[in-house]
Amino acid sequence: MMWWCASRTATIGNSGPVRSSPVWLFAAFDPLALCGMLRQAGIMTNETFILIPGRTSDQGCGISEGKYAQRYSQAISTVQMNADDMKRLGLEEGCAVRIRSEFGSVVLPVVAVKGDELPCGLLFMAYGEYSSRLMGGETHGSGMPTSKGMDVTIESADPSEIDTGRIS
């Protein structure tokens, strides 16, 4: 999958390589503090990823438990990213990120996928309320909105903005 990683830049926004930023010093102490520092320093990750919403076991079991029960809410309200991407962008486990498509945006915590499940440049989240907010209404004559392989941008967000638990 190197073809995909190789085409990407290792910088964030207009602030140059993230590893040169002093906010990295905070990473060892408190990940959420790092997220806050990223925002205060105006350092935003703002590059294009491809989002793949899909089914997961937890999401499937959660449907049976109830859409207002904790398991389903948790399953659909996390975005997964390759660990290398997270490291490159200075994102820690649980950091809030704003995911923005052409049609909407959501703020969710980001977690690293285990192993090599997700290549660099891709994001994954379970189908649900939040993935639907990023879809457009156009179906291109098929009846099916483009629900996988959506272009999105991500940027750091304040943890207080996380959409979790606000299912309508």
Binding site: M135, G136, G137, T139
Partner: peptide, 23 residues
């Protein structure tokens, strides 16, 4: 999404969670 339907019956599905925002 094209705002054509003026009433609906939804049987055993959840478009309010799974459809696009305009729909």
């Amino acid at each position: 999404a094209n705002r054509e339907a003026d009433a609906a019956m939804i049987i055993a599905s959840d478009p309010m969670a799974n459809f696009s925002q305009p729909a």
